[in-house]
């Protein structure tokens, strides 16, 4: 059974629910059940938070190193330089997120135009 198997109007929605919603929300529900068992300042919570943070950092690395769509055509070195400069700008210019974002974007645009 693929996306194109049935031509009824409801099939795409059922496909999205079974292949998209279910395998996504099931992890959220499991997370609630696990999170309900760890106490506020236990070592287990520190560990769960560490795994979650490392995963989010992994997603960031993925978006910069192996992007999809229009960004995929830009040079890897440009994306790395823009991300590094933006992050340094965030750290050393008053820790404002918007500063980091603007510096990163400015370098990316400059690199793409030149």
């Amino acid at each position: 059974m693929t996306w194109h198997s049935l031509t009824t109007w409801w099939w795409p929605y059922l496909f999205i629910l079974l292949a998209g919603w279910l395998p996504t929300d099931i992890w959220r529900f499991l997370g609630v059940l696990i999170g309900g068992r760890v106490s506020e300042d236990s070592e287990a919570l520190v560990a769960v938070r560490a795994v979650a943070t490392a995963l989010v950092a992994g997603v960031i690395a993925q978006l910069v190193l192996y992007p999809s769509g229009a960004l995929a055509e830009s040079a890897l070195s440009l994306r790395l330089a823009a991300a590094a400069a933006g992050f340094c700008g965030y750290l050393y210019l008053g820790r404002r997120v918007i500063v980091g974002v603007l510096i990163g974007e400015a370098i990316l645009v400059a690199g793409l135009l030149l």
């Binding site: 496909f15 292949a19 395998p23 992890w27 499991l30 696990i34 769960v48 938070r49």
Partner: peptide, 23 residues
């Protein structure tokens, strides 16, 4: 549909520790 669900499920596992840390 099964292969699609597995691919989506793998990309969404990260939500489990994220939600557990959020609770």
């Amino acid at each position: 549909i099964v292969a699609a669900a597995i691919a989506v499920g793998l990309s969404s596992i990260r939500l489990m520790p994220m939600v557990a840390a959020f609770v």
